[in-house]
């Protein structure tokens, strides 16, 4: 219960932190999507309910704080990413860092494509010119940062619980978990 109570504050803290860091390092030109990496991590490490709540909260806070006028866009995208990660985690182990990096790249790519298509079809804004300047560096950044993020959180898990929490079902040995 404490987890659900603290989740909105943690989400606000993370989103504000990534906005501040992006401002420092990239002058606001790029978004440092630590929240997306957190969602992917949740997809690999957490169960459906807490992970889904995390994705929803991260997306919603991101929508509110820095995503612009469309409320719910990143909420939907993050939930989609979480579910994608969750289903992928049933087949691949989170210990293989190159797979994590590749999957994060893929997620960031899907997110960028979704955004591009959304703005193209809904608002008739063609952001094709932003592909090289914004989307590609952002996707690469997510791929690189995900490796560090996963490593740090795995070590933290080891310190907190004495072992990593990915269950047998999540490493491809089991079926679809139904319980939180």
């Amino acid at each position: 219960m404490i987890y659900y109570a603290l989740l909105p504050f943690a989400a606000i803290g993370l989103v504000v932190l990534q906005t501040t860091l992006a401002d420092i390092f990239f002058s606001g030109r790029l978004t440092l999507e630590l929240s997306l990496i957190a969602v992917i991590y949740a997809g690999f490490r957490m169960d459906l309910l807490p992970g889904g709540m995390l994705a929803f909260m991260m997306g919603f806070v991101f929508d509110c704080v820095s995503a612009g006028p469309v409320l719910g866009l990143f909420t939907s995208i993050y939930l989609l990413m979480f579910l994608l990660s969750f289903f992928v985690s049933l087949r691949i182990a989170a210990g293989k860092m190159y797979l994590i990096a590749l999957f994060s790249l893929f997620c960031a790519l899907v997110e960028s494509l979704t955004l591009w298509l959304f703005f193209y079809y809904v608002y008739d804004i063609d952001r094709i010119d932003s592909i090289l300047n914004v989307f590609v560096p952002q996707i690469l950044l997510v791929g690189v940062l995900s490796v560090g993020f996963f490593s740090v959180l795995r070590k933290w898990e080891g310190l907190m619980y004495g072992k990593t929490v990915q269950s047998r079902q999540r490493t491809g040995a089991g079926g679809f978990p139904t319980k939180a």
Partner: peptide, 30 residues
């Protein structure tokens, strides 16, 4: 949760406004 997100998105698009009480609360907290 997925349905809520989609409803939120639809609501935001149809009303053409991102401002709502919850968003303001989040901004206040942020």
């Amino acid at each position: 949760l997925v349905v809520a997100a989609i409803v939120l998105l639809s609501y935001s698009l149809t009303r053409n406004s991102g401002a709502c009480i919850v968003k303001n609360l989040v901004l206040e907290a942020a």
